[in-house]
Write a protein that binds this DNA or RNA. Structure first.
Lengths: 299, 299
DNA sequence: CATAATTTATCTATTTTTTAGATATTAATG
DNA sequence: CATTAATATCTAAAAAATAGATAAATTATG
């Protein structure tokens, strides 16, 4: 639908920036008559005068000024698109898809995404949060370029990046906290466990011990709320319930053995060593960030 | 500098939107071969593949998707520019310049500007605040399209829009407030007056009575602060010092006569009845707004 | 004040780019 | 396997842009 070409807008810009047709011609590697022709075309299409000749200098009209300002933006945008295409031509991916197990601390992920976006604002990031086998599926179905999950499916290679330590907790009002002696697995079986459901299709529950009763929830926040309200006990990553522990909304269960569990999260490239440059860059940023976090933890 | 033409980006868009070269050709009133040529040109320039033929349908590549999204924006922007130019062609001004005496309530002006901007977001508004004869100058030098001031210079026509009532005030600690009897002009002559200076070049002071001593300030806020600190007495529009009167920072002087003055502000079109449509529209919005204000006042 | 220099405008022939139309090619469909 | 529906390619024609020469207007200069 637009009739004025980019070239014509550029001509206008060149005339203004070089203050004159002749100089604009020079700058654009064209003849002066070509510039003149371009302006006439522009003015005819738009049916407005953008330049007037005062003395022997061409100057913008009021209308011209308004259009010039916008032309600058338009042309700059076109230029950026081509720069972006250049990146693509060199193999840079237009977007990076990340599948992240909900166990992974969101804040760290968001920081890294922010950092990446500052470096490469034109590359889209898609973040999918997954649970357990949902994470594997993202890999197998090639729905993500980078996956952060607790298991490395056969045939993939992953770098361990973070240990998540789980603790068993329940509301202080929960019957499990009323017993005097320390608890073992048998005691737990008698109570309802709250489990975050698997976003994958198969029902692998990855080492959760089978409690008789269960409450299954798809969202970890909902699950925590349920636990606070005394609906059952649950295993949570220590980091995710710091707040609830501090405020006495949840309390660690005094398990005789296995009161803590660890899950090691790994970062896995879906395409192994053939991952694209944007994907690799993101992965490296993430690893750097985690190295920092570890260094801080050790102090 | 950009090499890909708007037409080429449009071709890409048309193919996607009509899902096919043939349909795109139809939509653009071109031949199918022309569309095909356009895509090839685009891909050659950018050195990336934007469309791939899957089966017998052309579909965007990942790169193509990223570029398509931006192409939509680019083309839309170009279209808007031409729509804007259309407005200009019909006589709509690219900007409206307003000179406003500082006596006029800023809040009302800003409201009207906001209202105008919502209706005509592409028309620029330039607001200049002036004092006394500076307002006239804006008119005479054609530096504004609409002027709001207290005097109508010879040869111009103005509509009265607002009465500003002035009161003489001084800090409660000021000597003028220590006298028992009511004051007359002679009393005032003995004290320092604080005057807001004229932004025009000539020194007309428009009926201010000549006090012996003066403190001249260019800014009304500075002037009010000075008065609060007891540096002198001053005449102010009641509206502008409501806050200081309420908090006892300033107190009206008990003048025997002339304790109040009125100045009538008028709205003047610099180009009389030849004002452009945007200017007129602004003026009408302003008058409407003031009518509302008056209606409210009368209750 | 006449002349030179500078700048935009216009005209024409040439070159480049775009287009259409015919035809080829490719893949799905029955 | 013929048919249909799509894109690709080739060639000639049309349209658009360009350069170069020259004209016209304005300022600068001696």
């Amino acid at each position: 639908m637009p009739k004025v070409s980019l070239e014509q807008w550029q001509t206008l810009i060149a005339i203004v920036d070089n203050s004159g047709y002749a100089a604009a011609a020079e700058a654009m590697n064209k003849s002066q008559s070509s510039i003149s022709y371009g302006v006439q075309k522009l003015e005819n299409i738009l049916n407005v005068q953008v330049l007037k000749v005062e003395g022997r200098k061409a100057v913008l009209t009021a209308v011209g000024k308004a259009l010039y300002r916008r032309a600058l933006i338009l042309v700059e945008e076109a230029r950026q698109m081509e720069a972006l295409a250049d990146q693509f031509a060199e193999g840079w991916e237009p977007n990076v898809r990340i599948a992240m197990d909900t166990l992974f601390p969101e804040t760290i992920m968001l920081e890294v995404i922010d950092q990446f976006a500052k470096l490469k604002p034109l590359t889209r990031i898609e973040l999918k949060e997954t649970v357990l086998s949902g994470t594997d599926e993202a890999l197998l179905r090639k729905e993500a370029d980078i996956v952060i999950g607790g298991r490395i499916p056969p045939g993939f290679m992953g770098d361990p990046i973070l240990d998540i330590s789980f603790i068993a907790v329940a509301s202080p009002t929960h019957p499990l906290h009323k017993t005097r002696h320390s608890l073992d697995y048998q005691d737990l079986r008698l109570h309802r466990q709250i489990v975050v459901s698997d976003s994958g299709s198969r029902d692998i529950d990855s080492g959760w011990l089978g409690a008789e009763q269960r409450l299954t929830v798809t969202n970890i926040q909902t699950s925590i709320t349920a636990a606070c309200q005394g609906l059952g006990y649950a295993w949570y990553p220590a980091l995710k319930i710091q707040h609830e522990l501090d405020n006495g909304l949840l309390k660690a269960l005094p398990l005789s053995a296995g009161g803590k569990k660890n899950i090691q999260l790994s970062m896995i490239y879906a395409d192994g060593n053939y991952a694209g440059p944007a994907t690799k860059m993101f992965g490296e940023l993430l690893q750097q960030r985690l190295k920092q976090a570890k260094a801080l933890d050790k102090r």
